[in-house]
Amino acid sequence: MKAAVLVFPGSNREGDVAQAIELVTGRRPTMVWHGDGDFEKVDLIVVPGGFSYGDYLRCGAMAAQSPVMAEVKKRAAQGVPVLGICNGFQIMTEAGLLPGTLMRNSHLKFVCADVHLKVETSQSLFTNRYQAGQVIKVPVAHAEGNYFADAETMKKLEDRGQIAFRYCSPEGAVDGPLGKGANPNGSSSNIAGVFNETKTVLGLMPHPENAVEPMFGGTDGKGLFEGMVEALS
């Protein structure tokens, strides 16, 4: 599997995700600078976490208009898989690749913690290594992870199975109080990650790339990368 990781001014998790990809593929991904309107053909594009353009105006708003994102939109439309993590998720909603938006956490604080996620479906190229309903533990680190979409969009997401991950308790309960416990940021319906309609684009706030080595808090995130390798190699 050949992957490209985008790099914006202010990205800071591009090295982490490149490392995770190299760990499962044995192959270093290509790093692509935000000003590049074209780059080599790849099987997967990753939009990493960080604070692109200093989060000016809105998180991801500037990066979404960069030359590289115009190319990503073109390739996503052709079916090339795109994975957006944290700021990458914010960039992709701003770019219109994914529905909804990420607002300021309801408690107004930056949250940096391990969270539990319920995998909603195994039927995607990203989640095929997990079971539907499985609970995994991965870290989050964000101040704007509060997922919001209007009622009509929320209904569509539920009906079409576009919700990839929900925040939950260690036992898998997703009905915790908003902004507390199982829901770290006030996200609507505990949403931590969503797919596009064809499930070839995934955005999520948590950092699976930071849960791939036993020495660093667990390996629950590794399945995401292994699943993609299996689907795309």
């Binding site: 500037m62 909603t93 701003e94 938006t101 607002m103």
Partner: peptide, 9 residues
Amino acid sequence: KKLLANTVI
């Protein structure tokens, strides 16, 4: 529409 506002919210 393109940049200054996010019309979702």
